[in-house]
């Protein structure tokens, strides 16, 4: 399935090739969680402070358990924007 990954501020460097304006489409396996998606791009998990799926906040304990759906927008910011870790 395809999700839209959005990585901002200092996390922008982990975006896959072809990313435009901090976002890119990304193919992931069914059952992928935010942490799996971040890890696949080598994004340090400790740098993912604010994590949103479709604009809704994902609390830290759920980042390893919530599964993404086809078409979901997964966004992350480093500590620049606060967030909860």
């Amino acid at each position: 399935m395809i999700i839209r990954i959005k990585l901002y501020a200092a996390l922008g460097k982990y975006l896959p090739d072809g990313a435009v304006k901090n976002e890119a489409d990304m193919e992931v396996a069914i059952g992928t969680t935010p942490e799996v998606a971040f890890t696949s791009l080598n994004v340090p998990l400790e740098q993912c402070h604010l994590v949103l799926i479709n604009g809704l906040f994902v609390p830290p304990p759920e980042r390893a358990t919530r599964t993404l759906a086809n078409g979901d927008h997964l966004a992350a910011w480093p500590p620049v924007a606060g967030g909860v870790r």
Partner: peptide
């Protein structure tokens, strides 16, 4: 502190633009 020690000096308040837009 991550916000006052790293985030605000590096990106300023403008880092909020995409945060708030994504939040709707």
């Amino acid at each position: 502190n991550a916000v006052t020690g790293e985030g605000l000096p590096a990106f300023g308040t403008q880092v909020l633009m995409n945060v708030i837009n994504e939040t709707g």
